[in-house]
């Protein structure tokens, strides 16, 4: 393979792997910016993937080509409902947010596998028939180099994920809602004094994170795995969490980190067929995202600072 061929192969596949990560990481940004740690992203992704596949299998005949998109909506709703559980526990019941997140992760995988076994009588679902189609953007894909790199046989979902990231940046940094969200996560008491309803803001933020994680999970399931089993979502949620931190709790940073992790993932899978890369044992590419996140947190790659009130329940009237 020439260098260009490698590039044409690796870049689209990196974007392909990154799309679900971007969405889930953005979900994490919303939740943590409001001050609620969301370790449960993994579980929310699981529920999204499960619901997406289930909807796709059941309604493929009814909706035809639109099924995958409608499945995203179903996945969004399901994950949003599950995220409410996390919200109630960590905001209203003042539970330890990390513990509640762990419970969400356990619950999601257990519940969806329980239902898979109940419905299909085996450990994983059938394969879906209606999938997201790859397509080439007209005109843009004819641009030399850039067209081949970014616009040829690409998934719509990738554009969707990038659009959501940009939208999230706009919402968090350019709207009153975003200002309130950040205020609640940095100094809830000050925000409360200014008349912002801290509890409501945090509920909304956690629900957004649930919705986005659900969509991310369903995209992963419907583009990469095409069925649902116990190992369908196996750490992608935590990788998204890592992307969020590596991106310093900033939507565009998280997107960049997710794209980078997508690259690492696609390299670890496609590596053996690429010169130079195949010399590197795949384990280094597999652990790269996690190692980088630790280094970023330790301040070796710029300092990553969490929102000040992240992880602390807000108790009115407490100094």
């Amino acid at each position: 393979m020439t260098f260009l061929e490698v590039l044409y192969f690796i870049v689209p596949s990196a974007i392909f792997y990154a799309a679900p990560l971007i969405l889930v990481a953005i979900g994490g940004v919303f939740s943590e910016r409001s001050g609620v740690v969301n370790i449960g992203l993994e579980g929310l992704m699981v529920i999204g993937a499960f619901t997406g596949i289930l909807f796709n299998l059941f309604y493929a005949d009814t909706f035809g080509g639109a099924t995958p998109w409608l499945a995203l909506v179903a996945a969004m709703v399901a994950a949003l409902l599950l995220s409410l559980l996390h919200a109630v526990a960590s905001i209203s019941f003042r539970a330890d947010q990390v513990v509640s997140g762990v419970a969400i992760n356990l619950l999601a995988i257990a519940l969806s596998l329980y239902l898979v076994k109940k419905i299909f009588g085996k450990g994983q679902t059938d394969f879906i028939t209606e999938r997201f189609a790859r397509y080439s953007v007209p005109v843009l894909s004819d641009i030399p180099f850039i067209g081949d790199l970014f616009f040829k046989s690409i998934y719509n979902t990738s554009f969707f994920a990038i659009a959501v990231a940009i939208l999230a940046w706009f919402v968090i940094y350019k709207t009153p809602f975003g200002l309130r969200l950040r205020a609640v996560g940095e100094h809830p008491m000050a925000a409360d004094t200014m008349g912002i309803n801290v509890t409501r803001m945090r509920y909304i933020a956690v629900m957004i994170s649930g919705a986005l994680a659900g969509i991310g999970g369903a995209i992963y399931a419907q583009t990469i795995s095409n069925d649902f089993g116990h190992a369908t979502i196996n750490g992608q949620g935590f990788m998204a969490l890592a992307a969020m931190i590596f991106g310093k709790w900033h939507p565009l940073g998280a997107m960049g980190a997710a794209l980078f992790f997508g690259l690492a993932q696609s390299l670890s899978i496609a590596g053996p067929s690429i010169p130079y890369i195949k010399e590197i044992p795949s384990v280094f590419l597999l652990i790269l995202p996690y190692v980088l996140t630790i280094l970023a947190l330790a301040g070796f790659i710029g300092k990553a600072n969490a929102p000040k009130a992240n992880g602390k329940p807000y108790i009115k009237g407490e100094r």
Binding site: A89, A95, A103, L106, L107, I109, L111, Y114, K118
Partner: peptide, 21 residues
């Protein structure tokens, strides 16, 4: 399905974590 027990465990964690309520 044996996952029912995992569900029970998750719910127990959830309630213990929500000890405040």
């Amino acid at each position: 399905p044996l996952e029912i027990v995992e569900i029970v465990i998750a719910v127990i964690i959830f309630f213990v974590a929500s000890g405040y309520i």
